[in-house]
Design a protein around this nucleic acid. Sequence first.
DNA 1: CCGAACTGGGTACACCGTACCCGATTACGC
DNA 2: GCGTAATCGGGTACGGTGTACCCAGTTCGG
Lengths: 259, 259
Amino acid sequence: MTTEKSGDYLRRSLELLWGRRERPTRGPKPGLTLDRIVAAGIRIADAEGIDGLSMRRVAAELGVGAMSLYRYVPGKAELLELMIDRAYGMTDGSDAPRDADWRTVLRTVALGTWRMYLAHPWLLQVNLARPVLGPAAVAGLDYALSGLADLDITDHERMGFVTAVDGYVAGCARTHVNAAQAARQTGISDEEFWTAHGPMLEKAMLSGAYPHVAALAEDAFAVPGGKLFEFGLERLLDGLEAFLAARDAGRSGGGAKDA
Amino acid sequence: MTTEKSGDYLRRSLELLWGRRERPTRGPKPGLTLDRIVAAGIRIADAEGIDGLSMRRVAAELGVGAMSLYRYVPGKAELLELMIDRAYGMTDGSDAPRDADWRTVLRTVALGTWRMYLAHPWLLQVNLARPVLGPAAVAGLDYALSGLADLDITDHERMGFVTAVDGYVAGCARTHVNAAQAARQTGISDEEFWTAHGPMLEKAMLSGAYPHVAALAEDAFAVPGGKLFEFGLERLLDGLEAFLAARDAGRSGGGAKDA
DNA sequence: CCGAACTGGGTACACCGTACCCGATTACGC
DNA sequence: GCGTAATCGGGTACGGTGTACCCAGTTCGG
């Protein structure tokens, strides 16, 4: 039955994520550990990109046969899930202020996530269908929510705050990370890329079809991605702050409203 | 030479994107057109997901041999670029207000992009290294900039506005779209997924390790993605508006500052 | 001490992108 | 008109992928 099989797959993958797994007593001792496999996968993905990550490659890195990995992991998708949650958990939590105001907390989360994406670009290139609900992911959410605990807003709005920041970070990081990897991935340097595009774009600009793009200063595109990210992040936080201010004003002035 | 080859690839791909291509006079008439190939690719990717898109599959859809496609397209990457720019261009521009205030324009852009991502989820699942600079993409940027033309801000800030909105939309859409495709992609229904996660999450909540997540109302996660998206979008636009207000106040009150 | 349970991993299959090659078709130069 | 160069369709083949299946070797419970 398909249902049973997928259920087993799910249960298995969850056990791996949350670390519940008792060693069977019989049989030879395993020569590998989940940790080593996941670490090897991350090492390869970091160094060679997500396209360089194959089961055979991971096995080679560990000096075992390809099929041995399947004794520890149901399949490649599950390995990726484990790699993702592991990467989530690798952020050093020491710089995370504990009892700060909500804005500091959300900014800390955003910058930490941003840095994580830059360190592990493949996180945004693997498209897992459902979000990975592992211990590290839940811990990250918990920390973000801790900053919003004292605010007088609904839980829906709390989640709205967090997902807005997360969405913004992921979107910005995706384009930034892809661009940063472009030269290696395509074998075409930035210089080649732009000199190839130059004539075409110039013609397009002169055509008058794109007046507002044409009116831009030449260096309008030459802003480092990090600066662009921080600019938008502060604007988003400003917007959330404005929401709180408006809510406070409404609460003290008029009747209370809840959803 | 590698350099020459990649240069040729680039030039070829650009010619395809911008439609500059004169029919060669000799040889048999082509039985296919670029348009038909790109359209077939989009049809397949829409219907079967990005994993279902292969050169052999596209060729079969068109009733030709796999290798025939390479007479029209240098490779799969270039086909994807063409599909992306085509999808950009498929947004119906009729509902785009022409002389509206910047907020209306940016909101229109954001909602249009959001709808496009929902209609073509694969747009966010294919990770092209560099952004596709085709005619439709440039036209979209031009429209967004048209809404910001009258604002008294620098071009860098203009680009900051646009990329902030674009980044937010892409990030939100990515998670939303992945979740929406999850059931088909994994063969696991939402119900199966959550009933499998239930016990594990309950245990985690009771462990006390995630107090703030545990404190959430049960239905905190049950907000439709579209509502979450719109909430954050308005907050972001609020933040941009606050930026303009602060700038105006600074300009009228103190000395002018420019970057 | 036998058999059950487990580990390592080789082989094989279906599928992928695409390099290379060949015959058929067409238009140009003579 | 005719040879020839250019182009089109596409078959074959290669190296890669994830992984199902199977078997040999190892270890412990009964």
